[in-house]
């Protein structure tokens, strides 16, 4: 079971992780975008951190929805509405829940990713955050079919996500500002795919902490 306190801890840890990776994500974005992804994510999750104490006693769905609204109104660019929609949709799917079983956890991530796809219209191989999430969800579903140890399965999913993130390097961007670079976008790791990996990795690290 994943508890509500662990979900709140995940969100708090994300604030720290995204501050630590602010320069790194911005540097990735300066190669193929407009050099603000790290700055925008850091600003958004700092706002989330401010909000958390006032919502920590609400149900998990409510907490995630508030995180989504906060990101939508503070991040800007393309990542604001994409991650905002991710948390809004995952919140809607987790309505009224106080703890999550493995099935809920998959549903949380799946609903969020469905939201990203609907909002961004990305397809596999477009060099976006979806390129991290699609294979990761496959691993998650396949692994839970034979193993009900949450942490072991999440570890497998994080491994997939890390590889998937690196697999965006040889891709040519077909969405977002990077797409205008055409072939010049090849050879750079996608910043959105990278922040998506960090979000999942931080979830695992939070659950391992206990």
């Amino acid at each position: 079971m994943v508890t509500k306190d662990q979900i709140v801890a995940w969100l708090e840890n994300l604030t720290v992780v995204l501050t630590e990776n602010k320069e790194y994500l911005t540097q990735l974005d300066s190669a193929i975008g407009d050099a603000d992804h790290g700055i925008n994510m850091d600003r958004g999750f700092k706002k989330v951190k401010e909000k958390l104490p006032s919502i920590a006693d609400k149900d998990i769905g409510n907490i995630l929805k508030t995180v989504g609204m906060t990101l939508i109104s503070s991040v800007g660019g393309a990542s604001g509405p994409l991650y905002g929609t991710f948390f809004m949709r995952s919140g809607m799917a987790m309505a009224a829940k106080e703890e999550l079983n493995n099935e809920d956890l998959v549903k949380l991530l799946q609903s969020g990713v469905d939201g990203i796809v609907q909002r961004g219209r990305a397809q596999l191989g477009d060099k976006t955050m979806y390129d991290t999430w699609a294979p990761t969800l496959e691993t998650l579903n396949a692994a839970f079919a034979t193993n009900d140890n949450t942490i072991e399965v999440l570890q497998a999913a994080v491994n997939t996500a890390e590889q998937a993130m690196k697999d965006t390097i040889p891709m040519q961007a077909k969405k977002g500002r990077a797409s205008y670079l055409g072939e010049r976008s090849i050879g750079h790791q996608d910043p959105g795919a990278t922040s998506s990996y960090l979000i999942l990795k931080t979830l695992l690290d939070t659950l391992v902490e206990g």
Binding site: G77, A78, G80, P81, T85, R119, G120, K175
Partner: peptide, 11 residues
């Protein structure tokens, strides 16, 4: 038509 503008206005 810029990705950020489009996604924010759709939301």
């Amino acid at each position: 038509n810029y990705t950020g503008d489009v996604l924010n206005f759709e939301t």
